[in-house]
């Protein structure tokens, strides 16, 4: 049997979910034996998201152009997409900028009003991606197969989600251990 082609991705989040993933400790070794890691900011050097991915954990909300493009790419090339952590599921802390209105007031607040010195708006087309007006949960942008809330989801929750997937089954996302926000 071919190994499961496994990926993790990082959109607008703090990478805490990935840190929690690394908290899987020795189970990571077991995981590494059972999957082929094809894309991941913490476990793989490839810069382009590959085709035919079986499972991908996506951390973070969708906050800018790059996030948006990568989200679509992931959806197109992935069988089972897991919305990984509160930022992906609810927009969470990155989403708190939505209360300010669109991207302009956000940039002004961050780069002009709160600047210590040299206040200026970032402008580097092609290098710094444009902000979207709203940070959105992943499922408002692309269809999602599994939701794993948590800030971050504990290593136990990650393991309990992945184990059934490795067996080719869908995990039961229910109960405090699996779906409590925060």
């Amino acid at each position: 049997m071919d190994k499961i082609r496994f990926a993790t991705a990082w959109l607008a989040g703090c990478s805490g979910c990935h840190m929690s993933f690394l908290d899987l400790d020795e189970w990571l070794i077991e995981l590494a034996q059972r999957v082929e890691v094809v894309y991941s900011p913490v476990a793989c050097d490839l810069k382009d998201y590959p085709e035919n991915v079986d499972v991908c954990l996506v951390e973070g909300g969708v906050a800018n152009q790059d996030n948006l493009e990568l989200a679509h790419q992931i959806r197109d090339r992935t069988k089972i997409l897991v919305s990984f952590g509160d930022c992906a599921v609810t927009a969470n802390v990155p989403g708190m900028r939505n209360m300010l209105g669109g991207s302009d007031p956000v940039l002004k607040r961050a780069y002009l009003e709160l600047a210590d010195s040299g206040a200026q708006l970032p402008h580097a087309p092609g290098i710094v991606p444009d902000l979207l007006d709203q940070v959105l949960p992943l499922h408002q942008v692309i269809p999602v197969d599994i939701y794993m809330p948590g800030c971050p989801p504990s290593a136990d929750r990650i393991k309990a989600t992945l184990e059934p997937l490795l067996r080719g089954e869908m995990p039961q996302m229910a109960g405090r251990d699996m779906i409590k926000f925060g």
């Binding site: 809330p149 996302m173 779906i179 409590k180 926000f181």
Partner: peptide
């Protein structure tokens, strides 16, 4: 704007508990 992660009532909140109880994994 319920951001559980940074809330004083995280893990001590009736709304958060209810979300678990009724099975909300996303809105």
């Amino acid at each position: 704007n319920h951001v559980c992660a940074i809330c004083v009532a995280n893990d001590n909140c009736e709304l958060q508990d209810l979300a678990v109880e009724v099975g909300i994994d996303h809105s």
